[in-house]
Design a protein around this nucleic acid. Sequence first.
DNA 1: GCCCATAGGTACAACGTTGTACATTCCACC
DNA 2: GGTGGAATGTACAACGTTGTACCTATGGGC
Lengths: 351, 351
Amino acid sequence: MNVNPTIHDVARAAGVSIKTVSNVLNDNPKVGPETRLRVRRLVDEMGYRPNLSARGLRSGKTGVIGLAVPSLREMYFAELADSVIRAAAKRGLRVVIEQTNGDRELEIATLSGGQMRFIDGLLFSPAAIGQQDVDVLTTDDPLVLLGERIFGGPTDHVTMHNTSSARAAVEHLLGIGRTKIALIGAPEQPADEASSANLRERGYRQALEHSGIGIDPRLVVRGGSWRRETGVAAIRRLRASNVEFDAVFALNDTLALGALRALAQDGLRVPDDVAVIGFDNLDEGRFSLPSLTSVDPGRDEIAETAVALLVNRIQEKDARAAPKTVKSGFRIVQRESTGFGDGDGGRLPSA
Amino acid sequence: MNVNPTIHDVARAAGVSIKTVSNVLNDNPKVGPETRLRVRRLVDEMGYRPNLSARGLRSGKTGVIGLAVPSLREMYFAELADSVIRAAAKRGLRVVIEQTNGDRELEIATLSGGQMRFIDGLLFSPAAIGQQDVDVLTTDDPLVLLGERIFGGPTDHVTMHNTSSARAAVEHLLGIGRTKIALIGAPEQPADEASSANLRERGYRQALEHSGIGIDPRLVVRGGSWRRETGVAAIRRLRASNVEFDAVFALNDTLALGALRALAQDGLRVPDDVAVIGFDNLDEGRFSLPSLTSVDPGRDEIAETAVALLVNRIQEKDARAAPKTVKSGFRIVQRESTGFGDGDGGRLPSA
DNA sequence: GCCCATAGGTACAACGTTGTACATTCCACC
DNA sequence: GGTGGAATGTACAACGTTGTACCTATGGGC
């Protein structure tokens, strides 16, 4: 028995032509039920599995898509990757993950690189390139953009309601009676450029201005990457500046978790002294102490939509359709850090 | 300008044969410097990129390896995937990630599935199949096993020093004066079967027996998956049973983080009242409150070794070599939860 | 001036699959 | 009893690349 039988071996064993075997494998109709059965049995017996390189060469499709993200060490991207892999698996696709490390050169290389003659399409979540690089997205290969760094590009784009969900987050804090709401993880300087940070800051401002409270610049902590240390440092800065605050809106969960830590260390009670809300609804927030209220940006929906758009482009159903932009729905998942619950991380308002 | 030029297009443009272009691309010597230059320039100008399906078909190698893990939502596997992708990238390989969800059928399907005619080799981290399934690993395709569920199989295997590092963890607790050391995440029933849980429990027993303290079965909390809730529940069980304990060895970091949460909720100080040590050295433990002492099992080393072994098998340098088993080195990373530091998560003994 | 080595190339087949176009059988129908 | 048309198949080319075998100048050694 050959170690790796080809379609020829199966055909010979079955006494039919290779095309007939191919037809059986692809459920083409032109095969009699008896022949079909015999071929199927031999395929199983011989352990035949089609060579995807050959199939890919012939058909121009490999059944593999790429997902480019900064790093799986960032939980947001690990969870996104999980969702994307599941969405792809549903459609019989596999996913190659490319880590760009938030490196500009690597991101550009990924977009224009040899990668593209191998995968059928790419889901790309940029971290370094921005609006000014919009032209590097111009390509004939199927590409779906994720995230907030580039808008109005030439490709399909899946993003979230950053501004309105951020506004809802702040309104949630207002709703539980907080008025001195700090913002942490804000961009280095407020700008109109589209980025998660800017868009979410805008939501913060809208909520406060609309409520009549207005913005106190001392409550806005700017700068730093969205890591836990930054959340810790932000709380330290607020405390050191002696400004009073009774709530914190962290622009993502990782920052929020750092903030929780720093607040606990300073003996401040959450939510009694300070309420905290994050953004991303990471698994982790369900089990922090206290558990973390967060904006759920609909990661599964984002993944599902992005894969669906990509598949459409790959199949060229949409060959030359205008680029589409889709925003996923969001919701606030309330947990202990804004007052929900009895201190039991096990009972939560949502899965 | 053709959208996707092939080697033929480049050859025609350069006025040479396709083989010459191929030779230039593969740095074969039989090309004059002038021709080489001209071809190179045209490759750039035309944006030619080799079709990897064709190359894969011809050469039998795709440049893609698979990594099968239960789920990227488990931080351990996300970090492992990060390390594997980096190790693979160093060697010019890409990684397809397959999630098995800890599902037996899916794991077996992954091993014997169509996957294999597409990737050059597979790194497989089982979560459901065990020693009794050792024969499903028998395959002619390059396969490297990760983890502790199966030993003595027919493939290369990368694992860690579970028992001795667990023993070292407990000895670390003994070393800071703790004697009533609880174990959480222990297997449902103690067994000889090789699994992370059993092997690590064995280390716990060895340390305590060797120290003369011996095992108090009331301190061993059995059952539950290694999730945060389980860590929370384990502490609750210990507290409810009224047994005294001054330290906790959690069989992984996720459990330990749950334990930290439950301890804090009960007003117990860590490490003053209860010291805690985990296992895995996740990024997350660096930023928990308090930061978490943990066993670092050498994930980068594991990834690096596993990819190296796989590449050897793929290149058949080792065509029929006996299966190798490699154990990575380990070390204890001491942080606040066992007494290190001043409460500042920013200053740590190691990156 | 001849032979031979060598550098620099070329032609062709092959990898395993699927699409296109055509072949054969069998039966229903007029 | 010929005609048409399903039903069931087959042969061959083609996808883009690389390995094998070969070809052709050129120049050096004698």
